[in-house]
Design a protein around this nucleic acid. Structure first.
Length: 270
DNA sequence: AAAGACACCTGTCCGC
DNA sequence: TGCGGACAGGTGTCTT
């Protein structure tokens, strides 16, 4: 479900409710997520939340000692409860604060993660080898150009590789490549630095605009307040297979690339 | 080292 | 109305 804009929307939604609060109780109803929820998460009890942040699509809760690493996978979501409420079917974990507010982790498909770490977030095995944030100064055409030399992987898979750049998921990869006029199956090593500049600009633009609109709600994404994101109505090609390209009228193609559905205009994208 | 397949899991939708 | 199959926003791990 969530891509970077949805995770960022979630972060902004929960932060004001949790920052500086003291955790009273962690309740794990079902530890069977992507990795089993470790018993160490109980160590969060009694500690204050020092900061909340995001690295790629991972949400990071820094506590006084140690921290929590959360990932929403394909179907996860977080919500804030101002008072206790009966848990639903897929409400796997709750973090209840001393002031009565709770953070609830819901994930039907259980591809998400809820992990404990004692060290620095940046040194955690899941985080230490990640590429730059797409909305940071380190994300440049030079970076993409440099790491793509000699590589024959499809450009769409290349920009979805978290070791190259984080946070570009299936929706926004299709969107950005369309905006930049690059065919999703073009070899990454066959893209000029000038065209990478156009791609960088497109990625920054599409992610920024989506964050402003609260993310993309395709099926069931809701933010931490239970509201929808409105970027779906801005999508140019994603989920528009067979429909007319907005630029040239050619039918938008849908094709599986790297096991993921991809959308593009064979006329506008080369 | 790089590329691709596969794994994890449930819910929903579509065609018959 | 029921059933089987395809598909869904992610990404670590294993095999070529």
């Amino acid at each position: 479900m969530p891509e970077l804009p949805e995770v960022e929307t979630t972060l902004r939604g929960i932060e004001p409710h949790l920052l500086h609060q003291r955790i009273a109780q962690v309740t794990v109803r079902d530890p069977r997520l992507r990795w089993p929820v470790p018993a160490e998460v109980q160590q969060a009890e009694g500690q204050r939340v020092i900061s909340l942040s995001r690295r790629g699509k991972y949400l990071l809760l820094e506590l006084q000692r140690g921290g929590l690493i959360l990932h929403l996978g394909m179907s996860g979501s977080l919500c804030i409860l101002k008072q206790p409420r009966e848990p639903g079917k897929h409400d796997h974990v709750d973090i209840e604060m001393v002031n009565g507010t709770s953070l609830r982790f819901n994930d039907p498909r259980r591809f998400g993660a809820f992990l404990w770490t004692e060290g620095q977030f940046s040194e955690h095995p899941l985080l230490r080898d990640l590429g730059p944030e797409p909305l940071s100064d380190e994300f440049t055409a030079e970076h993409l150009y440099h790491y793509s030399r000699g590589r024959r992987v499809a450009i769409k898979n290349f920009i979805m590789n978290g070791h190259i750049v984080v946070g570009v998921g299936n929706i926004y990869a299709s969107e950005a490549l369309y905006m930049a006029g690059i065919h999703p199956q073009r070899a990454a090593g066959r893209v000029s630095q000038q065209r990478y500049q156009g791609l960088v600009d497109a990625i920054v633009d599409v992610l920024s605009r989506s964050i402003k609109l609260g993310g993309t709600t395709l099926r069931d994404f809701v933010n931490s307040d239970g509201g929808a994101g409105y970027f779906a109505q801005e999508l140019l090609v994603y989920d528009r297979g067979g429909d007319d390209c907005f630029q040239c009228g050619t039918a938008v193609r849908q094709k599986v690339i790297g096991q993921r559905s991809s959308y593009y205009c064979a006329s506008c994208q080369r």
